[in-house]
Amino acid sequence: MSLTVMKPGFYTTIQDLGRPGWRRDGIPLGGAMDRYALRTANLLVGNEEGAAGLELTLVGPTLTVERDMLLAICGAHMSPHMDGEELPMWRPLWAAAGSRITFGAALAGCRAYIAVAGGIHAAAVLGSRSTDVRAGIGGVDGRPLQAGDTLPCGERDSAGGARAAWQRLWRAELAARAGAQPRGRNGFAAPGWFAPPLAYGGGAADGIELRAMPGSEFGRLSAAARRAFFTERYNVAPASDRMGVRLAGPPLELSDSTELLSHGVVPGTVQLPSGGMPIVLAADCQTTGGYPKIAHVITADLPLLAQARPGAAITFRSVTLAEAQRIEIAFERDMRQLAAGICCRMP
């Protein structure tokens, strides 16, 4: 089973949940920027949450489905279509062999994810199939997809037991539903139920609010900068990428600019280089850094950061470490409930 890339889109890569455990060697965590969307897409096709899928950025690809398959599309809305009909998102989707899936530009948000039942079979490098473009490892030869790439995927990696049975049931059910539709309109089928999308794009006009805890060097900001960081609005700068989301807005001033020795940094860390414009580190961030750390975006809000595209407005709301950990624990409890809920859905 495979997908063929007809058009690659703006920047499409194979991602899973990254390669933890290798920071000692300077290897970034990597993996999906919006882990909620990838994990959910995987659950919707009966995969383990961490199976490899596709991460689409701003403009999605055109793909040909080489054999009947079960897939799911989550994350930013990029107008997925098949044969002139819009494909529903956030639910399992059966697609017939030979059909073509097209995407447009993201209407809101920045990144969408495609999961395929059984996952995408790129070779694992250091325990992960994630594409790390800087190190040139993972995915397809460590690079974004190109037209003509063939992506083997499907059954080989399917989980055994209950998940495999669930996959078989939905595959058969949706194939039957698609087959019952008129010829020419029988390329896909999907159930009416869906998984809950995150509120991407925030409250539109207000932009995206990210909850953040003050970092070790927050106290080094001038009094005005300390106020500004949690009240002013920032815009995502065009130079943002998977390593970091660069912000433009009122420059923040340090009252103490003593140089720091580098130490570990993680996705979510907000660094302040000398220009005064904060950078929120993201999935592919370097493993160590020496800039002042003024804040840390909480883990549960990193999917929102992933959906912040150039120009998007961002504000920060202050939370404590205790609140951040409570939110993280609640987030993971909700994920377990979602997984259980999907498993219980029978045709």
Partner: peptide
């Protein structure tokens, strides 16, 4: 890393620090 508690995701040393990444759940 050798002791490798289950909740530890990574341990990275630099100059005068060790940074430990853990799974709060």
């Amino acid at each position: 890393r050798i002791v490798g508690p289950e909740w530890m995701e990574d341990a990275v040393s630099a100059y005068d620090t060790v940074t430990i990444v853990y799974d709060p759940v």
